[in-house]
Write a protein that binds this DNA or RNA. Sequence first.
DNA 1: AACCTTTGTGCAAACGTTTGCTGTGGAAAA
DNA 2: TTTTCCACAGCAAACGTTTGCACAAAGGTT
Lengths: 331, 331
Amino acid sequence: MNRPTITDLARMLQLNASTVSRALNDHPDVSPETKKRVNELARELGYTPNQLAVNLRKRHSGLIALLVSEMNMFFNPSVFRAIEEEIHANGYNLIILQANNTLSRETQNVQICRQLAVEGVLVSLSAEAQNLDHFATLLDQKVPVVFFDRVLPQDHSCSVTVDDLEITRQAVDHLLKKGHRRIGGLFGDPKLSITRERLIGFRETLSNAGIPFDPQLAMYAQNSEEGSHCALELVEKHQVSALFAMSDELMVGAVQALETTKKKIPEELAIIAISDGFAPEFYNPKITHIRHSGYQVGQHAAQLLLDVIRGTIKKPLQEKLACQLVELGSV
Amino acid sequence: MNRPTITDLARMLQLNASTVSRALNDHPDVSPETKKRVNELARELGYTPNQLAVNLRKRHSGLIALLVSEMNMFFNPSVFRAIEEEIHANGYNLIILQANNTLSRETQNVQICRQLAVEGVLVSLSAEAQNLDHFATLLDQKVPVVFFDRVLPQDHSCSVTVDDLEITRQAVDHLLKKGHRRIGGLFGDPKLSITRERLIGFRETLSNAGIPFDPQLAMYAQNSEEGSHCALELVEKHQVSALFAMSDELMVGAVQALETTKKKIPEELAIIAISDGFAPEFYNPKITHIRHSGYQVGQHAAQLLLDVIRGTIKKPLQEKLACQLVELGSV
DNA sequence: AACCTTTGTGCAAACGTTTGCTGTGGAAAA
DNA sequence: TTTTCCACAGCAAACGTTTGCACAAAGGTT
């Protein structure tokens, strides 16, 4: 026989489908004896409910979508892992949609969420997104949405981020404390709010220390290769004594470049990064960093989303996670 | 109004739901004029079909599941990206389930696939899986399944892998060609078939070159930290002149450790790895490797699965991808 | 003895589509 | 004119569940 349905069970047991359904769901209205008969036959036939029918009837899908701007080896794996674990532990399943950093794919992904009737959405925005217009269809329908990591700066939706100003301050302060006065900064895509925020933190921390901001010492790089070039320029042309990298990717590029120079880390050049904590272990000396845990971000975002779905949380909540300095050999 | 349904459209247009459905699906039985009216109203109201209902009616979910043993920064991101792109381009959506390398979670994930009525499954087996018994429910129902990367050695299901013997031979041959005779090997979890195969390749290549296999020179390490320890032992205690690492993770561990020694790469110590190609760029000199593209593996696996779903392929097919030597500075 | 409550079950509708079949009006063919 | 055919639209069933309601039998309360 094909996959047995509830109706099949009902026919075989001389019961009504509704009774079988209630028995399987342990409804109090049905007698223990009937429940036993039903469950035994169900087990025997290997019955499992047709989730498609359940979904339609219950008008939900049991699905949570993760919208991510791109697949990135430095941040995503731990975020994915945390989210998958949290979602799964609560009986949902995770569907992943990537946007390739384009607004059009992101918009399309939002439509998919709507069509699939996902019950919640976790979003790390693509660089092109400068507003949330393309999320209107979801937000209008009151589909719970939690933004994380890459968010809009002045937005009042639920979100989980780190305090970019603060962590950059921590990093730069650490360099200042070690006596560095000429500090170069490597920054990512300026379209991203995390980039802008971190740059502000960088400037302000220097200003507060009485060091005038030199625009030449803050460079933008889109990937590790560009990070390498910028790092070389900062070190060789602008003679910085310390480098700040706002991400793992840029840090890796920088260290790779610096290994070509004769400069010893940390004696001749200090380096600090904002990092998930894995890449800093690749080197010797290990790279001092502000630990920005992707796992933690993912976990908190998922928990927040689940709270919103449950209705535990009524008002939008913006959560800012704390980060800690992990002092290793590079500074 | 809530989300409009096909029935709503029908009522507003004084049509039958079936006609509206056909109009939306561009069925030849409905007049161009009616199609126009329907489509206009649909656009106006922002109608999108309720996928839950479509799924139930059509008895499919549009979902493809990716079962992965764990989230790993070295291999997964590019695999995920390739699979997501391929799947999405063909109108399916991707749900991701991780097994935490346990058989129990993997079994559970198989059940989820069945319940959700996924239309195809891509699997990278967890280390604990020594047979496919737990896939019986899927295979019995003729759900298309393609295994990739981590597969069972003697299995006749569809799969996409690399030729482990061959790529290890390439790597070791390269070291031999450079004059190395005392070569250490770093290997991963011995429960995995890729580990066993690569170890065999390692031994045989050495044997063929007239070098008796020394078991002390082939070490198992589960992660990069253990890789570091093993690398140090091989270099300092066993005085190898070259290292082979069967994965990025072990390579990274090894290089990190070697940077603590005074040994110059490649003059005093050569190193080669099997790698996705990213991590070798982190270092200077860059690490020579056999390029095992996760993107390519994912892409081929997804394409194969789609072919099986379409019925284009009748017999199980085991695809073995070729890999190329990327010679950089480390050898 | 009449009434109410409880316990267990069945009936039927609903979730929103898709699709085989039936039917109608009009044009083309005989 | 009659027959045939086609283009178009509607009817109703189906996908497999869940759930409000009705109802019968049994037990308990006045």
